[in-house]
Write a protein that binds this DNA or RNA. Structure first.
Ligand code: SF4
Ligand code: SF4
Lengths: 157, 157
DNA sequence: AGTATTTAGGAGAAAAAACTCCTTTATTCT
DNA sequence: AGAATAAAGGAGTTTTTTCTCCTAAATACT
């Protein structure tokens, strides 16, 4: 909905790298299993990320992938840019063909505000936050699963 | 990017209805030509809109489509809901399968803010505003095209 | 050097989304 | 009643996105 599936996979992949091996070389295979992403498809995405200078890739035994920069320095925006391309965000809300900033329709401002909001989210969220978020999340889910087993089996809303 | 193509067509279609014939019955064919939407495809979309109670449909000679309610009363959100379905907006930013409001990850709030912004945009923008926006926009484009012809041929940025 | 390991790359299959065509049904007009 | 008009509906095609498979290239280890 917000970004393509490859892009979602990319985000989860680099988040995985960020929290398990900022230095270590992690194999595509391992990520695929851990994040439940189709392995050969992930391989392609990792290629893109490598070409986009977000990860290093190493061939041969002991090879794998690692983040090119530290997790604090990488924003979601960069991943989005490399995998989906920023032009995806430029598509108009109304679908009027003839459009530019000189002749904005009155909707422009409203719609632009949403876009700005979105962009800010992508640009200010670093990989580090993302990784931490995922960790905390997983803990929460696990703890809730335990409680659920003990107390009742009602599924959460 | 924000919504599907059928949904974009739907928005443009009802906007067309709003500005050309709140009372009049407009044929699918006419809309297709005016808005440059593939005619048979638009027919399907109009069916959806009719089933979703956003437009009336009339068969036979003199038939066509018209808005079911006045343009002030219809929000973009409703169109979105009928054509794409609201669940599209629920897809998580991170793609963590196990997710609910009881166990939100820390990202939830940030991401939710964007969603809220987006929803507000959809819910508060009425068809009337939309239609007016399109009209003003078209005028602007036309005026600019004239100026361009008179003064210089530089294409706008 | 030779073999095992791991990514790179290209070609192609499967699934989903976008779009078309044809037949049926309802309505109007003569 | 019969012809003409316009939407409804179902089945099929094309295009795009998602995903797979196979071979080649690089690196490491013995
Ligand atoms: S000016 Fe209007 S038509 Fe152009 S991108 Fe903005 S909202 Fe869309
Ligand atoms: S809580 Fe976290 S994982 Fe769940 S929808 Fe919100 S951002 Fe996504």
């Amino acid at each position: 909905m917000l970004y393509s599936r490859p892009c979602e996979y990319a985000i989860r992949t680099v988040a995985y790298l960020a929290r398990t091996g900022t230095e270590r070389r992690v194999q595509a295979h391992e990520i695929a299993i851990a994040e439940r992403i189709p392995a050969p498809f992930l391989a392609k995405i990792l290629q893109q990320l490598a070409r986009g200078n977000l990860v290093n890739s190493f061939k041969g035994p002991g090879g794998g992938f690692s983040l090119k920069r530290s997790a604090e320095e990488i924003s979601l925006y960069e991943i989005f840019r490399v995998v989906d391309g920023v032009e995806t965000l430029d598509r108009c809300a109304v679908g009027l063909a003839e459009c530019n900033d000189f002749a904005p329709c009155p909707l422009h401002d409203t719609w632009k505000a949403v876009r700005v909001h979105l962009l800010r989210y992508l640009k200010t969220t670093t990989l580090k936050e993302m990784a931490e978020a995922v960790v905390r999340k997983k803990e929460l889910v696990e703890r809730m699963a335990c409680q659920g087993r003990k107390k009742n089996r009602r599924s959460p809303p």
